[in-house]
Computed example of a mutant assay.
Amino acid sequence: MLKYIKNHMDSIAGIEIYPIISLLIFFIFFVGLFYWVITAKKDYINTVSNIPLDLDNNQNQEEL
């Protein structure tokens, strides 16, 4: 089965570019994500990290 797949893929012209493109997309995404995390402002991070706690407090206050 694996031999059939290898022979079939060898017959496709230009197939060697797809793994390179996939690796580039993966690498660029995580480099961009890392850059965003490093440059994010502390106030924004604190605000976003407190959202679940704020929502929980609001729901508890509404029940009372």
Results as ranks from 00 to 15, higher is better:
residue 1 M to A: 14
residue 2 L to T: 01
residue 2 L to I: 10
residue 2 L to N: 00
residue 3 K to E: 11
residue 3 K to N: 09
residue 4 Y to T: 15
residue 4 Y to V: 13
residue 4 Y to H: 10
residue 4 Y to P: 00
residue 6 K to C: 06
residue 6 K to F: 13
residue 6 K to G: 01
residue 6 K to Q: 10
residue 7 N to Q: 15
residue 8 H to K: 14
residue 8 H to W: 13
residue 9 M to G: 01
residue 9 M to H: 05
residue 10 D to N: 15
residue 11 S to C: 04
residue 11 S to H: 05
residue 12 I to N: 07
residue 12 I to D: 01
residue 12 I to Y: 07
residue 13 A to T: 11
residue 13 A to G: 05
residue 13 A to E: 10
residue 14 G to Y: 02
residue 14 G to C: 07
residue 15 I to N: 05
residue 15 I to W: 04
residue 15 I to F: 13
residue 16 E to I: 08
residue 16 E to M: 13
residue 16 E to G: 12
residue 17 I to E: 03
residue 18 Y to P: 01
residue 18 Y to I: 14
residue 19 P to F: 05
residue 19 P to Q: 05
residue 20 I to K: 03
residue 20 I to V: 14
residue 21 I to E: 00
residue 21 I to L: 13
residue 21 I to V: 14
residue 21 I to G: 02
residue 22 S to D: 01
residue 22 S to P: 00
residue 23 L to T: 10
residue 24 L to V: 13
residue 24 L to A: 15
residue 24 L to R: 02
residue 25 I to N: 02
residue 27 F to Y: 06
residue 28 I to G: 00
residue 28 I to W: 04
residue 28 I to N: 04
residue 28 I to V: 15
residue 28 I to H: 06
residue 29 F to N: 08
residue 29 F to W: 08
residue 30 F to L: 10
residue 30 F to P: 00
residue 31 V to K: 04
residue 31 V to L: 15
residue 31 V to W: 03
residue 32 G to W: 03
residue 32 G to C: 07
residue 32 G to R: 03
residue 32 G to Q: 02
residue 33 L to T: 13
residue 34 F to E: 03
residue 35 Y to S: 11
residue 35 Y to G: 02
residue 36 W to D: 06
residue 36 W to L: 15
residue 36 W to F: 11
residue 36 W to I: 11
residue 36 W to A: 14
residue 36 W to K: 12
residue 37 V to Y: 04
residue 37 V to M: 14
residue 38 I to M: 04
residue 38 I to Y: 02
residue 38 I to W: 03
residue 38 I to P: 00
residue 39 T to M: 14
residue 39 T to L: 12
residue 39 T to A: 12
residue 39 T to K: 13
residue 40 A to R: 06
residue 40 A to T: 12
residue 41 K to S: 13
residue 41 K to V: 03
residue 41 K to W: 01
residue 42 K to E: 05
residue 42 K to N: 05
residue 42 K to P: 00
residue 43 D to A: 08
residue 43 D to K: 10
residue 43 D to V: 05
residue 44 Y to M: 13
residue 44 Y to D: 10
residue 45 I to S: 03
residue 46 N to G: 02
residue 46 N to W: 01
residue 47 T to L: 11
residue 47 T to K: 09
residue 47 T to N: 14
residue 47 T to W: 08
residue 47 T to H: 06
residue 48 V to S: 08
residue 48 V to W: 08
residue 48 V to T: 09
residue 49 S to T: 10
residue 49 S to L: 11
residue 51 I to E: 01
residue 51 I to H: 05
residue 52 P to V: 10
residue 52 P to T: 07
residue 53 L to V: 13
residue 53 L to D: 04
residue 54 D to L: 11
residue 54 D to N: 15
residue 54 D to P: 01
residue 55 L to V: 14
residue 55 L to R: 06
residue 56 D to Y: 07
residue 56 D to A: 13
residue 57 N to V: 09
residue 57 N to D: 09
residue 57 N to E: 12
residue 57 N to C: 02
residue 57 N to W: 02
residue 57 N to M: 09
residue 58 N to I: 08
residue 58 N to C: 04
residue 58 N to W: 05
residue 58 N to R: 11
residue 58 N to E: 04
residue 59 Q to N: 07
residue 59 Q to F: 15
residue 59 Q to E: 11
residue 60 N to L: 13
residue 61 Q to T: 10
residue 61 Q to C: 04
residue 61 Q to M: 09
residue 62 E to D: 09
residue 62 E to H: 12
residue 64 L to T: 10
residue 64 L to Q: 11
residue 64 L to K: 09
